[in-house]
Write a protein that binds this DNA or RNA. Structure first.
Lengths: 164, 164
DNA sequence: CGTATAATGTTGAACCTTCAACTAATTATC
DNA sequence: GATAATTAGTTGAAGGTTCAACATTATACG
């Protein structure tokens, strides 16, 4: 095979490995703290936190799924467990019979409140203290640009593929 | 409770959400392409690629685990599946009776070769084309700094906790 | 209206990862 | 050199995620 693939050069490879390292290890660090301080995963924390910010502590399942970057199926399973644990409750949406609403319970608020300070402290240490406000802000902007590209259709080849 | 927790301000929250978005979605985009072009996950790709770069296409399991940012247990399960699929083979290390060596087979090389061009193309598009070489390099440097902080013990609170 | 299509969620099975327990070999220590 | 502690790796069970199939309700459109 004639190799016209534009492989990564050494500098690009270093960049890529650093990013992959971050993407693999940051979630583990977050899960570790939250498991310890709140007996929950980072995904579950996201669900609870996102409900706490919402009007009446209530959101539609599909909105919630989008906010926490998860599939509806994943959220549905997680919601069942959170409901069994008494941290949220679910009930049908009065205005759209297809939809389900999830609401944070008082106990959910309590558990979130217990875990949150440690979580914020960890985020501060790993991002804002490690980089300083300015560089942290740069990291945010760069992340957003990559994110846009990802959401733009998952890559050129995927777009072509999907059109067939 | 008197609330002296230094919550994130709006700008910090935007930064953090962007980063979390990246960390949740980049792996999904990578897995999608590799699943399509090579019937493998990104983690499996990492294992095969890391073996291909090695002397004699062979590495110790524990070295491999560190290189792909995974636990030894996870790697062991994955290695069993890759071995069953004929992509790698495992055999005891001749110089250290505790260790196991993993070697990429010819079929493993073939499968890797099949998936690699699409993978590189995706990485190029999502990172280097989206950001340009210079900003991509910045992203790499920032990632590395956060990574160092993570590996520095998982955060101040964790260090204190662990000392008790 | 009535049917076709799309949107919203849930479920169970298959699959993957983590966790704890375990085996086996090596190194440290006395 | 025997025993203890450490290191390397595997395993099975428990728990979480994905995938495909399904049920249900809403919307489009003829």
């Amino acid at each position: 095979m004639s190799d016209d693939t534009p492989w990564l050069n050494e500098s690009e490879m270093e960049t890529w490995l650093a990013l992959i390292g971050l993407v693999s290890k940051l979630p583990i660090a977050l899960d570790e703290q939250l498991r310890r301080d709140g007996e929950m995963s980072h995904f579950e924390y996201g669900v609870l936190a996102s409900l706490e910010l919402a009007e009446d502590h209530t959101r539609r399942m599909s909105d919630l799924a989008a906010l926490v970057n998860g599939s509806l199926s994943r959220l549905s399973h997680v919601a069942r467990r959170l409901e069994e644990a008494g941290l949220i409750e679910r009930f049908p949406c009065p205005t759209d019979g297809r939809a389900t609403l999830a609401r944070l319970t008082d106990e959910g608020v309590h558990r979130l409140t217990k875990a949150a300070p440690g979580h914020v402290a960890l985020v501060r240490e790993l991002i804002f203290e490690a980089l300083g406000e300015e560089d942290a802000h740069r990291l945010g902007r760069l992340s957003r640009r990559v994110l846009e590209r990802i959401e733009d259709g998952g890559g050129e080849s995927a777009r072509i593929f999907r059109r067939l």
